[in-house]
Design a protein around this nucleic acid. Structure first.
Ligand code: FES
Ligand code: FES
Lengths: 132, 132
DNA sequence: ATTAACGCAACAGCAAAAGTTACATTAGCC
DNA sequence: GGCTAATGTAACTTTTGCTGTTGCGTTAAT
């Protein structure tokens, strides 16, 4: 697991959680499985918690758990929770003096928006219950 | 022009070329317009030449020119010529022991392939003659 | 012969992502 | 109450890919 590691890490972890939703997992456990560092895990899962997909508990018997049923969490939920996008975003700059630049900007931005939308649609069709 | 600079640079340059196809441009000219370095321009345009979209000539009166009519070059041609993809590619690693990983890999890869295909389709609908 | 261009390779600088360390806080357990 | 094991966060370091830069060889017009 190398690239796009945040998303990979998140999906992989949720996939395993979906297979045994009641078990509480610590960031150290998860990190060991994923071959990374507990802090990285907490960083990523923290975003999923903010999005309401996971809950975490501090203290002695703490750890991480799904916040909803596995079949109520789609890949799109995860993708959107980390706001990192798989489609390069064409950030719009203040309209330049160059007409070529402006026209291109519009064309490309509109294509990318459509593509992004359809990507999310596709991801929404699969739940993490289906990937374990 | 900051991000995804290779594609931006390429499209922008071709857009301008489409407006005056017979004029020969040097990498230094182009670099000045694009606010970058001639070597960077040659790197990018070199790929477009390999793909048959441009021709370059060395020597004193050398420079760059379109290899075909502007309305015969689509944005998709340019996108494909630089093999840099706007959709993050889910590189496949040797099937791991973990079934979650394998299933995810397949799902995500297939989605991304579809998305990439449809992106290229969309880009193929516009020629550089339309963006000047 | 000179000049102005490309081609290419090697190197330097930079910025974003990942990993690491450190420490405060929290909650169960004896 | 004190110990232990967990999260939460901030700061720092390392890695990595991209951009930009320099240098030099090659080519062709003048
Ligand atoms: S990571 Fe999927 S099995 Fe350990
Ligand atoms: S860059 Fe488009 S006008 Fe100079």
């Amino acid at each position: 697991m190398k690239r796009n590691s945040r998303l990979s890490l998140a999906l992989h972890t949720l996939g395993h959680m979906a297979g045994d939703p009641d078990r509480m997992r610590t960031s150290a456990d998860i990190a060991k499985h994923a071959g990374t560092n507990p802090v990285v895990v907490r960083r990523v899962l923290g975003k999923l918690r903010e999005a309401g997909l996971l809950t975490s508990e501090k203290g002695h018997a703490g750890g991480w758990r799904l916040a909803r049923a596995p079949d109520a969490i789609t890949l799109a939920d995860v993708y959107l929770a980390l706001d990192e996008s798989l489609v390069a975003t064409a950030e719009q700059e203040a309209a330049s003096a160059c007409s070529v630049e402006n026209i291109l900007q519009k064309k490309v931005a509109s294509v990318l928006e459509d593509i992004e939308r359809s990507l999310v649609e596709r991801l929404a069709a699969t739940t993490i219950a289906e990937v374990r």
